[in-house]
Design a protein around this nucleic acid. Structure first.
Length: 976
RNA sequence: GCGCUUGUGGCGGAAUUGGUAGACGCGCUAGACUUAGGAUCUAGUAUCUCUGAUGUGCAGGUUCGAGUCCUGUCAGGCGCACCA
């Protein structure tokens, strides 16, 4: 019987659908396990072989957990809203809805061919009204909340209003945009609009006039993680800073919790580190400096409070509001010119070359520690958005200040004993402090840091600053609030309308506000939202209702928010929706949430480290504060699958000809390398005829072949992309080798977390293994002589209780149940141990190697034992589900292999005579022996070998090496 | 500049976590069966000056013993970055 994978795979895929094998329901009698893949953007290019890598890895784990008796949730859906989907639609000149749905169908078709155990009844699409209702709902909840710093959690905005009525902002400690102060009386005196504007300062979802990343090429604003090196991640269009009125999420309020939460989750160090960098916590002090000959003062932020005595000048960010206040009439022209220069520089220019530039403002600040007057400068190296936008410069111990001081010839005072600052600043936080205060000047205050270490000095200064009322201890974060609105069409509409210019939430019962049809959905360079083109709005109906309820003039039409939400809105809480995807009353029911808790295993690319993985954690923490999600962290364990890179092939055309020369003959010719479709190249040998047929211009191509008459292509590892003709489509692999081979091969390629180029060369090995396995399981010569077991007796290898209902003899003559031989069981249990341990740590490639070894062993033994075969099939089921089902079926089972019990490992089969002898799989072995300290090495060695017990263990082996550790132990290394 | 991470045959990668380095697969070599093989099977395959020696990017160290631990260094990949 041939291994007919096409027939087998088709048959079982159909069965799984018919029998809803992968449907999962909450079941309190079983422990739960939640496996999740980052859901894909359904892009136009379809899936390539890189996409399923993570899906296969998690599918194996999900199936394994199910075999172990867990109730496994493994859902899939589509992140359909947002820029990528819309850009594709624009490029192909179609409506995004149409292309998105087409792409989803294509993805689904491709996914179905690989045999995943997704519960498709739970599919979500972020662009479905039933789904984004809850995105809009969450936004409204954020709008109606503020963040209390003291209790570190979100609170209803009503609480804040009550407090304002009572005592204004007195003693207020909440997350805010600006530090406002007003009394209860002032609050009460505000009109509705003023109150609304004031509350925006505190809401978690708020409208703010902020500096945003404006991308004219995409016609929208972008979040920080969507901009890299001054250009948009999507499309690479230039991005400029612009002040705009935008919706924002106060992610920064959760900075500390986002940081602390990292300690409670099992993510890789590199992702945690990336998030820590992105959050950018720095502990320091804010110190107030008075401006000389003025009543004004300003605050600086520093992490080096110990360097207060080394300040020789101050620097303000050019954008700082203080600039105007400190500029003296004499300096006005120079300052204005400088500001003009800074404004003319793009973000990108500023980032790439760090020019030392600046201008003196004319004013001085009084150093509260020395009483000295320090000149106030203005320079672009100080950022308006970080800290207070003002710094104290300590050139001796900060490289940027040092460069500035040298350039403008400002004084440099060293503060650390022995620090050499003749060539560069001494930035290390190490050493003994001196010159604080300097011996040659009269102390201004009764405070000295001399003789302390830097660390002690920082602590001492902070304490002093606080006690003397000069400032306060402050923690700063780099993490910025997320800009949440986009001037785009393909996204969730905001559930917001404007009542007399005041942003107002649409009543919850009217959600969702559906995305309207528009004629023109293209973005505009000026930022006019495409939703303005809508002629028919679901909003119209809602508007009517609101108008009726409020008893205003029936003809009143309130304007609705025309911005849409960004891509990350819909992807931030989708894992919660999978728990209860059809619930129309709540995002997720209490019961479902408490059953599934949070995602146990999350699999996806590391490129989402500072985007989705921050937003999701923020979003979930907010919902946790509201009591919607019972777990503070959404993703307990995270695995980042590596990227599959493409392996491009090249042909070499001799310049100005249509002649192509083989790679090994190309030296001596002037050639142009040209990408060639990898699908017409096999093992770097070009299919010449296929090449001629590939494109019309190559029809008449001529070739200089190598000595063997072959055309050899060059190759390079590049990103897998259409333009490099190196895209390998999973469908083609499935067609040629089958889904089980694809699954096996993708896992065999190497560790899941490692990036690697796709290389089809090794795929035969995996396919060959499956063919051998098939042969072994079905070969007439090794037919099982045993009956299908029916629960009697103990089955050490497989404790299955699944009976063969009709008792039909399958696979040849059956006789009474029989134990596997010692050797068979040893091979099997070595495999059970290895596979079980490896799956737990996602080391699938080594599991597969163990399968190959085990099969070899069993084939050599001509094993015919049924319990061994059954166990083997179950172990295989996570990796190659189709084949496992078929074999399970051939073994006489009518139930799915998915519900078989995972074989239990029994150590006894690997032990010899119950001693501590470890027999490794490939024939290596060693065992320890104790021996007294006063015996010489040689004697110990002899004694060990002469020991009757040792002799027994050594049976069948030869001694490769004896390792003697005097007084400790002896290891005898054996080999077969 | 700061941080994380990876360096092992011709290639992808193993190594019981400190104990025979190179499992397993690809490729390659020889042989068998074949009209044929890009099918299948068997044997071999780290290197060298080959009865021996050398080998896990490089240089040291700890240890009876180091791919594994420590110190330094080089190279690649990733993240953050005029963040005070």
């Amino acid at each position: 019987m041939e291994y007919n994978f096409r027939e087998i795979e088709q048959k079982w895929q159909q069965k799984w659908v018919e029998e809803k094998t992968y449907k999962v329901v909450e079941d309190n009698s079983k422990p739960k396990f939640y496996v999740l893949n980052m859901f894909p953007y359904p892009s136009g290019a379809g899936l390539h072989v890189g996409h399923p890598l993570g899906y296969i890895a998690s599918d194996i784990y999900a199936r394994y957990k199910r075999l172990q008796g867990f109730n496994v949730l493994n859902p899939m859906g589509y992140d359909a809203y947002g820029l990528p989907a819309e850009q594709y639609a624009i490029q192909t000149g179609q409506h995004p809805e149409k292309t998105t749905f087409q792409n989803i169908d294509r993805y689904r078709e491709q996914l179905d061919k690989i045999g995943f155990c997704f519960d498709w009844d739970r599919e979500v699409r972020t662009c479905a009204p039933g789904y984004y209702k809850w995105t809009q709902w969450a936004f409204q909840k954020m709008f109606n909340s503020f963040f209390c710093n003291k209790c570190q959690s979100a609170q209803p905005i009503e609480k804040l209003i009550e407090r304002f009525e009572e005592k204004g902002t007195e003693g207020l400690d909440v997350a805010q945009t600006e530090n406002l102060t007003f009394t209860a009386a002032e609050w009460k005196a505000m009109d509705e609009k003023q109150k609304s504007d004031t509350l925006m300062n505190y809401r978690i979802a708020f409208m703010g006039e902020t500096m945003v990343n404006w991308c004219a090429g995409l016609g929208t604003v972008l979040a920080n993680d969507e901009v890299v090196d001054g250009v948009s991640v999507r499309g690479g269009f230039p991005v400029e800073q612009k002040k705009m009125r935008q919706w924002c999420l106060r992610v920064s309020a959760y900075a500390q919790r986002l940081l602390d939460g990292l300690d409670t989750i099992q993510w890789s160090d590199s992702i945690k580190e990336t998030q820590k960098n992105w959050i950018g916590r720095s502990e320091g002090a804010e110190v107030e400096f008075k401006i000389a000959d003025s009543d004004e003062s300003f605050t600086i932020f520093t992490t080096r409070a110990d360097t207060m005595f080394g300040v020789t000048f101050m620097v303000l960010a050019p954008e700082s509001e203080l600039v105007e206040k400190v500029t003296t009439p004499e300096q006005k022209a120079a300052v204005e010119e400088y500001i003009k220069y800074v404004k003319g520089r793009t973000e990108r220019e500023r980032m790439i070359d760090h020019k030392v530039t600046g201008v003196f403002s004319g004013s001085y600040a009084i150093n509260p520690f020395t009483g000295e007057k320090n000149p106030i400068w203005i320079s672009e190296y100080v950022l308006a958005g970080y800290g207070t936008g003002a710094i104290m410069a300590v050139p001796a111990h900060d490289s940027r200040d040092y460069a500035f001081a040298k350039h403008f010839n400002l004084p440099i005072i060293p503060l650390i004993e022995g620090a050499d600052i003749s060539e560069e600043s001494y930035d290390a936080k190490e050493g003994i402090v001196c010159n604080s205060p300097r011996a040659d000047v009269k102390p201004y205050i009764d405070f000295s840091l001399n003789g302390l270490t830097v660390k002690e000095a920082i602590a001492a200064t902070k304490k002093y600053v606080k006690e003397a009322g000069l400032g306060r201890v402050k923690v700063n974060y780099r993490l910025r609030d997320a800009i949440f609105s986009r001037q785009r069409y393909w996204g969730e509409p905001f559930p917001v309308y404007y009542k007399n210019g005041i942003p107002t939430m649409i009543p919850e019962e009217c959600l969702p506000i559906e995305l309207p049809e528009v004629d023109k959905f293209l973005p505009t360079e000026t930022g006019e939202p495409p939703l303005g083109n809508a002629t028919v709005w679901a909003w119209d109906e809602v508007n009517k209702k609101i108008v009726e309820n409020t008893k205003i003039d029936n003809k009143t039409v309130f304007p609705i928010e025309l911005y849409t939400m960004p891509g990350f809105a819909g992807s931030s809480a989708y894992y919660l929706r999978y728990m209860d995807p059809h619930n129309n009353e709540a995002l997720v029911s209490k019961d479902a949430d408490e059953y599934w808790q949070n995602v146990d295993l999350y699999v996806g690319g590391s490129e989402h480290a500072t985007g989705h993985l921050i937003y999701s954690r923020f979003w979930n923490k907010f919902l946790f504060d509201l009591g919607i999600s019972c777990k503070e962290e959404p993703f307990q364990k995270l695995i980042n699958q590596g990227m599959i890179q493409g392996r491009s092939n090249f042909v070499y055309r001799i310049k100005d000809t249509n002649t192509f020369v083989s790679y090994d003959k190309k030296d001596g010719y002037d050639v142009t390398p040209i990408h060639v479709d990898v699908n017409i190249v096999s093992a770097d040998v070009l299919d010449v005829e296929a090449f001629k047929a590939w494109r019309p211009e190559y029809e008449t191509a001529e070739f200089i072949l190598n000595d063997e008459g072959k055309y050899i292509c060059g190759w390079a590892v590049e990103k897998m992309s259409k333009s490099m003709f190196n895209v390998v489509n999973p469908d083609m692999i499935v067609e040629k080798f089958g889904a089980d081979t694809l699954r096996l091969y993708e896992m065999f390629l190497g560790p899941v977390e490692q990036s690697k180029p796709w290389d089809t060369n090794g795929i035969d090995g995996c396919h060959r293994f499956l063919k051998k396995l098939w042969k072994f399981m079905t070969n007439e010569e090794t037919l099982s002589p045993t009956l299908p077991h029916n629960g009697e007796g103990d089955h050490a290898a497989c404790s299955s209780t699944t009976n063969t209902p009709n008792g039909l003899p399958i696979m040849g003559e059956m006789s009474k149940g029989q134990r596997g031989s010692k050797e068979e069981l040893k091979a099997l249990h070595t495999l059970i141990k290895k596979v079980t341990a490896d799956i737990e740590v996602f080391s699938y490639n080594t599991s597969i190697a163990a399968f190959m070894v085990c099969l070899n062993e069993l084939t050599k033994l001509k094993s015919t034992n049924r319990e061994v075969k059954e166990a083997l099939v179950i172990l295989l089921a996570p990796f190659c589900p189709h084949l496992a089902e078929e074999l399970w079926h051939l073994l006489g089972h009518t139930t799915t292999v998915c519900d078989a019990p995972w074989p239990a490992f029994n150590e006894n089969y690997l032990k010899e005579d119950s001693v501590k002898m470890m027999v490794a799989f490939n024939g290596k072995a060693r065992f320890p022996l104790e021996f007294p300290a006063d015996v010489t090495k040689e004697d110990a060695e002899k004694a060990a070998l002469a020991n009757p017990q040792s002799a027994k263990w050594m049976e069948g082996f030869t001694v490769a090496k004896v390792i003697v550790v005097p007084g400790k132990m002896i290891n005898v290394v054996l080999k077969k």
